[in-house]
């Protein structure tokens, strides 16, 4: 098969720009997911009335529906009842809505893994509930749950491929455009795959390294 290198070079800037958008979306999506997940898991830990039920409903809704339909609902559905937002805002909210529940589940299982006696030990030196969370529970939960958090992070970066559906010029969307315009199918898909490899592989290595680092810092093994 002849590869049209000329074409690849000429569309390189396009893909570069799209890749940055993918990275940006993945980054903000992951960051917001972590915050949402943390807040949700703390609400679940304290068993705060009503909020606890709301978190439960949110987690089930978010985990049992596809991102694509979440995005369509946010982007096309809500605008029609008066809530408008830009594509990028919508995409990041969608990713955070999806990722928040995954992160929440990860944090929750991490917190559950902290032994009851560790909590009692913290209480016995007079720590308040918030101090207990901050100094005893979260550092241990974080180390335990790091592999799940890393997996969720990769998952969210991959899910950014879907937000092209609401007209964001990330990698998928650009590829679709390029195929539609120039019919250079092979080259376009090749660039697409390479772009994802360049984003996901280093991220994956970075997270694996971070996992070991955190585990060592917390427990030394």
């Amino acid at each position: 098969m002849d590869i049209n290198w000329q074409f690849i070079i000429s569309t390189l800037p396009l893909y570069q720009k799209a890749a940055w958008i993918t990275i940006k979306l993945g980054f903000w999506g992951t960051l917001l997911s972590l915050i949402i997940g943390l807040v949700c898991s703390i609400i679940l830990y304290f068993r705060i009335k009503i909020l606890k039920e709301l978190v439960g409903i949110y987690v089930e809704l978010s985990r049992n529906t596809p991102l694509l339909i979440q995005l369509f609902f946010l982007y096309f559905g809500l605008t029609k009842i008066g809530i408008t937002m830009s594509e990028t805002t919508c995409a990041i909210i969608g990713l955070a809505f999806l990722g928040g529940s995954y992160m929440s589940e990860a944090f929750r299982s991490g917190i559950e893994a902290v032994s009851k006696t560790q909590i009692e030990s913290g209480l016995s030196i007079g720590l308040s509930q918030m101090q207990l969370i901050r100094y005893v529970i979260l550092p241990q939960a974080f180390a335990v749950t790091m592999p799940s958090l890393a997996a969720n992070c990769i998952f969210l970066f991959k899910e950014t491929s879907i937000v092209g559906a609401i007209a964001i010029a990330e990698l998928m969307h650009v590829t679709q455009d390029v195929i539609g315009m120039y019919y250079q199918t092979f080259e376009s898909l090749f660039m697409l795959v390479v772009a994802y490899l360049i984003i996901i592989l280093p991220l994956s290595f970075l997270l694996t390294w971070l996992e070991r680092k955190v585990r060592y810092a917390e427990f030394g093994n």
């Binding site: 990769i154 991959k158 899910e159 491929s161 879907i162 998928m172 898909l189 697409l192 795959v193 994802y196 490899l197 996901i200 592989l201 994956s204």
Partner: peptide, 8 residues
């Protein structure tokens, strides 16, 4: 399959 998104 784990690295490349399914949509791709």
């Amino acid at each position: 399959f784990r690295i490349i998104p399914i949509l791709v």
